[in-house]
Computed example of a mutant assay.
Amino acid sequence: MNFDEMRQRIHAGEGFIAALDQSGGSTPKALRGYGVSDDAWSSDEEMFALIHQMRQRIIEAPSFGNGKVIGAILFEKTMDGESGGKPVPTRLAERGVVPFLKVDKGLEDEAQGVQLMKPMPGLEALCERARAKGVFGTKMRSVIKSADAAGIAAIVEQQFAEGKRILGTGLMPILEPEYDIKASDRAAGEDILLAEILRNLDALGEGEQVMLKLSIPAKANHYASLIKHPKVLRVVALSGGYSTDEACAKLADNPGMIASFSRGLLQDLRCSQSDEEFDATLGAAIDEIYAASIA
């Protein structure tokens, strides 16, 4: 797929985006979930080698290339690695999966009810390197903890400001101002979030588009106006700590919003499974998430 074909695949393709971008802080937890104990590695290099083996197994599984996964978000080390004897972005594109890259450097401490992203020096250079490898877009995450209007405004402004930097390199940014699903004031906060996103979308330049990755809203169809917005290529949902069944049930109530799940996709995969068991388990999760995404 060339860049225009990738854009069309993401814009109109039926399916969902797999989140395979666990990084330094979340990798041990992901490995534990996969059945790899902490004593199986003694350095970051060994840890990342183990998580890469898991990701290779996912990418090469028959069910992953069945057309229902239209995109995959990668950690930088995964982008630089290989699968099936080829660079990971190349291999994904061969399987009909559009590659994205996680670019954020983690979160600042909470202030005004939000956690902003840490500074991203060298963002443009990373994006240019990613595009040269065949990556289509990026993803960056920040977190909203409460319905603080000033905090939500700041988090959305930061996402769009960094998104403009990414657009300048020719890549498609996924903006992810995640709303903590455990927050008691989430419904009110998501009203503020929607208004701030719409305000910033209106400020984008002619022909500019972004993608949005948002928590499944407390009120069904709350983001319908974003799904239809001409400056939004696609709206995707994070699972946010829900189980696969919970996330899929809630997502199905939001037509036009597709999944971009991590835990919801990977929760039942184990290193001890045979290749056949592994693929059957992955395939079942893919089928369930796909059905919710096209509901």
Rank of each mutant, 00 (worst) to 15 (best):
G67I: 04
A61W: 08
V103F: 07
S83V: 00
F100Y: 15
D80C: 15
R91Y: 14
G67E: 02
M54R: 14
I51R: 13
A49P: 01
P89V: 03
R95A: 05
L101K: 00
V103R: 11
A93F: 04
M47I: 01
E82N: 15
R55G: 07
L74N: 08
M79W: 08
D104T: 05
E82C: 09
A61C: 05
P87I: 04
F100W: 10
A61L: 06
T90G: 14
K77R: 15
F75H: 12
M79K: 13
L74P: 06
V97A: 12
G85Y: 05
V103G: 07
E60H: 12
R55H: 10
K68D: 02
Q56C: 12
L50C: 11
I51C: 09
H52I: 11
A93K: 11
S63P: 01
R95L: 10
M54Y: 15
F75P: 03
Q56G: 13
P89W: 06
N66K: 01
I59R: 00
I51D: 11
G67Y: 02
E46K: 05
G71N: 05
F48G: 01
A72D: 01
G81E: 01
E76M: 11
M47D: 03
K68H: 07
M79Y: 08
I73H: 09
E82H: 15
E60I: 10
I70C: 04
E45T: 14
I73M: 11
D104G: 04
L101W: 00
V103Q: 08
V88A: 15
G81H: 02
V69T: 10
I58T: 14
R55M: 10
G67W: 03
L92I: 04
S63E: 01
D80P: 14
A72H: 04
P62L: 08
G81I: 02
K86I: 01
G96C: 11
K77N: 15
F48P: 03
F64M: 06
G65C: 10
F64G: 06
A61S: 10
V69M: 09
G65F: 11
R95T: 02
N66W: 03
S83G: 01
R95W: 08
E45Q: 12
P87Y: 09
P99I: 00
E60A: 12
L50Q: 13
S83H: 00
A61K: 08
A61E: 08
A93P: 03
S83F: 00
A93L: 13
L74W: 11
